[in-house]
């Protein structure tokens, strides 16, 4: 029950060595051990997608992942997106602001992380591809229309940046 394990996790480029209980979820580890509160928790049974982070570049439910499973991994959370020097938002974050892709904002970090993965793999997704990617993230406020628009906007801005 209280077996402690040593883990070494790199989060947003910074490495952390910690001793944690084997049962500690990655979400709780990020939120309460590393004080990275941007990864929210909505259902703790893997349905809502609010807690989505990237583990070695792949989206994952941090509520269904144990911290010990992330031993040796590279984890990216929403805190890793903004420019550290200037505070400037990542183009995906800015697109969500500009296209009103959020209301309460609780699910937003999960959507942003899923979008980051999507646009990394598929810079010019169709609407159906966007919906497929975001189908595992619940939003109770927006009705998704403005989220779809945010992802389209982010994709077009990122493409412009890359081709410039």
């Amino acid at each position: 029950m209280t077996t402690m394990q040593k883990i070494h996790v790199t989060v947003n480029g910074k490495s952390h060595a910690r001793e944690v209980e084997a049962r500690l979820t990655l979400a709780d580890f990020l939120r309460h051990e590393l004080h990275l509160g941007g990864t929210h928790v909505g259902c703790e049974h893997g349905v809502c997608g609010v807690c989505t982070v990237l583990i070695n570049g792949q989206s994952a439910r941090s509520c269904l992942t144990l911290a010990v499973q992330a031993d040796g991994a590279n984890v990216t959370t929403v805190e890793g997106l903004r420019n550290r020097e200037t505070g400037q938002l990542h183009p995906i974050q800015q697109a969500f602001v500009d296209a009103h892709g959020l209301q309460c904002g609780f699910c937003t970090p999960g959507f942003v992380m899923t979008t980051l993965e999507l646009l990394g793999e598929n810079p010019d997704p169709s609407d159906d591809e966007i919906k497929d990617a975001l189908g595992g993230n619940l939003c109770r406020c927006t009705g998704y229309q403005s989220i779809l628009e945010s992802v389209r906007l982010a994709a077009s801005r990122l493409q412009t940046t890359q081709s410039a």
Binding site: G38, H40, L81, F96, V97, H100, L102, G105, T108, V112
Partner: peptide, 20 residues
């Protein structure tokens, strides 16, 4: 259709929801 003043903090994950 002004941008919401709430949003930069919300998309950054820095808003103090109670469990934070």
């Amino acid at each position: 259709e002004v941008n919401r003043i709430e949003d930069p903090a919300l998309v950054s994950g820095t808003v103090e929801f109670i469990d934070n």
